[in-house]
Design a protein around this nucleic acid. Structure first.
Lengths: 343, 343
DNA sequence: TATTATAATTAAACCGATTAAATGAATGAT
DNA sequence: ATCATTCATTTAATCGGTTTAATTATAATA
């Protein structure tokens, strides 16, 4: 290749340095077999040509890409944005790149990505699942193809796989218990999820708190909707315009809670004096809303880190079928100023 | 390969279907040379084996990866999170995947990613630059290696390349002009940037508005800091505890403005009655803050889409050195409730 | 039936690296 | 001087696809 407008290959380096391609490969990977003086010459030549080893060629023979595929539902949601950031960060620290797939809460796309990723493009997958049956089905193929993967963020009931998840049931319980202890009995639930599987655990925990406190759980206070700020705003208005109005709102994520906050204000009510609000996720904005939001922390950073570590260990440990890693992180209630006692 | 725990190759498909690898390749790519009946048989065999063509092998011969590398500073900032989302979305629409690199506002990492990406891992790059000299230097190598790239978000003065940017100077001007027309003369500037290059244009536009309105621009009201919510909070407090206190604040991004909002409240002042605030970026939260924030829209979605289109056109049009694409998007002032007239 | 044209398939080269095995040169022992 | 070692480098196979050119099978024509 004497074409200046092109990438230098290992053969170009070999020719310039006066050695064979094999020697160049060995030298650049620091093999002790190669004399220091020739290593030096080869490094010079490589530097002169701005040589970068072809990723595809190397990957093909080494059967590895040093790449992790991360599948998330939606990067506009700060929860996933944070996970993405964390995953990229820790992966980088261990020499891995990440290829980002955003499903947009669409089952087709989730399936597509899970399918295509059996093509040796990545050494392993990190999946934040949205449609549980889709993931369960594709997981079988991934395993048959020997592609390591770790489920992140949510536990899929009855599925045997590595996972790093949050105990959402417990999170729901903590939120409800907190409100109940403050004297609330009528709590509206803003149930904004892409599919019913997703909110289930939180809701179950919520119910459990009612039962354990000897209260009746009112299902007519549970209102389903989308998962964006705007949806929380709309549903909060509905719930609060009820004649038998709740005294508190629990939003299944912080985005919804922030929308609800705005709705409450527009109705001329005050948070927390008239209405208490609890969110879920503890996104950065939750502490900058007015008032700062009481919420349940998801510990995304810890989750991202743990998941990356687990996946890379799985990738690098040839011990194929060692027992599954299963980590269930305990969420934490973050008390700020959006809740008050009922008097 | 009769190892069940492994990926099927084209040879496995060939054997099962009773044809050669070449025929399989041709058949699966829909070549008209292959009889329909054998195509059918081959598709069946491929389906039975859950065959996925090896990405690396294919990439190596076709000299393409259908992958775009996106380099951004920080996925926690909603501006970049939105760009990432948009880029992924439109890239997917054209059959490309994205590999995400987050520099964390670190020059070393920005350089590292720009360097490594000359290794045939991606067909082109989308770069949201942070350290202009780094990018300029690496850009030369990218061009020498014939790797297409598009600069996104910011225009680098004096650099000849494809770009899709926002006219930040004009954005700064619009923000200032708006405040000045409301009667403000003392405006504090929260200048939270990772490096001085970044805020320059916005500041220049801001100054220009002062000059054109016959006002004196006070540099002692410009306070540098980091670029996160917390920094805006801190600096706003400083600016407002001055005896000669500004009547308005301009934050160089919305995150800082949201921090400032909190600071103003804590000081017992009211927005907009006592202090007007203008942000920059128009992130989703800007319309849900209290009060909703007047800000300058960056049009990330448009930017992401345009940049992807431009890059893919560059990648796919063999016409190597056609003239550069240069798009400067005009930002828009979004007026909400965080500013009031001076009386 | 022989010949030619055309359709369908395959052999073989290639992409650019890595690596096991082979070769060659230098050193040391006898 | 001869042979065994050790050290340094190279040859050649390989990874799993795609694609061009060659080959074989089939159909059309004389």
């Amino acid at each position: 290749m004497n074409d200046l407008k092109s990438k230098a290959t290992i053969y170009d380096v070999a020719k310039l340095a006066g050695f064979s391609a094999a020697t160049v490969s060995l030298a650049l990977s620091g093999s002790p077999k190669i004399k220091e003086s020739t290593k030096e010459k080869i490094r010079n030549a490589a530097g002169k040509l701005k040589y970068q080893p072809n990723f595809l060629a190397r990957g093909l023979v080494k059967q590895e890409t040093k790449t992790i595929c991360l599948i998330i539902p939606d990067n506009l949601n700060p929860v996933f944005a944070e996970i993405t950031q964390g995953v990229e960060h820790f992966a980088y620290g261990r020499g891995y790149s990440i290829i980002l797939c955003i499903t947009n809460e669409d089952a087709q796309r989730e399936k597509f990505y899970l399918e295509i990723m059996r093509n040796n493009r990545a050494d392993g997958l990190l999946v934040f699942p949205t449609f549980f049956p889709v993931v369960q089905e594709e997981a079988l193929r991934l395993r048959a193809s020997n592609v390591p993967f770790v489920i992140v963020g949510r536990r899929i009931e009855g599925m045997d796989s590595d996972y790093v998840a949050i105990n959402l049931e417990s999170g729901g319980y903590k939120a409800a218990d907190f409100l109940i202890k403050l004297g609330h009995k009528k709590i509206g639930i803003i149930y904004g999820v892409a599919n019913p599987d997703l909110g289930k655990s939180r809701l179950e925990g919520f119910k459990r708190a009612f039962l354990e406190n000897g209260l009746h759980f009112r299902t007519d206070f549970v209102k389903g909707c989308g998962y964006r700020i705007h949806d929380g705003y709309k549903v909060a208005k509905e719930l609060l315009s009820n004649k038998d109005r709740p005294t508190a709102l629990f939003a299944i994520n912080d985005l919804l809670a922030i929308g609800a906050l705005k709705a409450v204000k527009e109705l001329g009510l005050k948070v927390p004096d008239d209405i208490s609000i609890v969110g879920f996720d503890d996104i950065e904005f939750a502490s900058y809303s007015d008032p700062p939001l009481t919420t349940v922390s998801l510990k995304e950073k810890e989750m991202g880190k743990t998941a990356v570590e687990m996946l890379i260990d799985r990738i690098e440990n040839t011990s194929a079928d060692s027992k599954r890693g299963a980590i269930l992180i305990e969420p934490e209630l973050i008390v700020r100023d959006s809740c008050a006692e009922i008097i």
